[in-house]
Design a protein around this nucleic acid. Sequence first.
DNA 1: TTGTTTCCCATGAAATCCCATGTTATCCCA
DNA 2: TGGGATAACATGGGATTTCATGGGAAACAA
Lengths: 155, 155
Amino acid sequence: MFLSTTTNGIDAKGRLSVPADFRAVVRGDPLDGIYVWPSFDGAYLEGGGQALMDRYLGAIEDMDPYDDARIAMERSIFGAAKPLSFDANGRITLPKVFAEHAGLEGRATFVGLGARFEIWNPDVYAKHEAAARAYARENKRALKLPPRRAGESAR
Amino acid sequence: MFLSTTTNGIDAKGRLSVPADFRAVVRGDPLDGIYVWPSFDGAYLEGGGQALMDRYLGAIEDMDPYDDARIAMERSIFGAAKPLSFDANGRITLPKVFAEHAGLEGRATFVGLGARFEIWNPDVYAKHEAAARAYARENKRALKLPPRRAGESAR
DNA sequence: TTGTTTCCCATGAAATCCCATGTTATCCCA
DNA sequence: TGGGATAACATGGGATTTCATGGGAAACAA
């Protein structure tokens, strides 16, 4: 699982250290790196490992070949995603278009969201995070811990 | 189940012994440690084991991808949670931001709440506990047990 | 060439591991 | 049931490794 929020520096060559915890999640994948694409929903990047791409692929293959949603999903995810491999020290090199899409300059914030993660401009993310926490506080009764499902143990 | 309340010391390196009872609850998890995040609702930390995270993950994946509640939950729980592994003696190292969020200095109080637990500043918790007990006393008629579910025994 | 990308090595800071110790709780046996 | 032996637990400090980051050399492209 991708968890927690980490901000790392982007150097003059466009290199960016991927948090060690995130690298551990994709260890063993055929790609020694991560898949990243610009979000169609805002000025940030989305990404994940092989497991995430396999799930998206499975979801798409279950849709009708000429379903508009299928075409949109294929284009905006598979059409936009790049495999970014780690260098010997666990860094990726951000393509310029990705950095521009997310407004990344000098620093980037990785946000772990379980099955996937996002990469944000740190200042922009701080605002979004504050909004999310405020929403959660105001709606905490709706966000209560869900009931256990079949097969899950309470311990 | 996480049960009971224990206060342990935090040393100069930020290390904190997790109560042995709590460690026993997560024994066998893929992570030899616990998941902890700053509560979005107050100056304390929340945490649990793999079973708890799996429940949150399952609940989130049942929601619509761009639902506000989903985004709020993803960011305030997964985006904030860190896997903290035990050292050889059953201690975790508290990240500085966590200690600051909960006002932890020198000592920390673990409070078991069944499926999850909380970590508090001992003095702050003492006040909260007193308030909670008073509330329970005044509202004791509302504290009835729900009906047993199928398969559950009364014993 | 000139600019770009990839690989390799250096470094300081931070996190992790390893061993030691006192104290408390548990066990066992007389 | 008392009391000594044993194991479990919380805590402390030093040594080691990992991590993020910087820069240079080599391979590549235009």
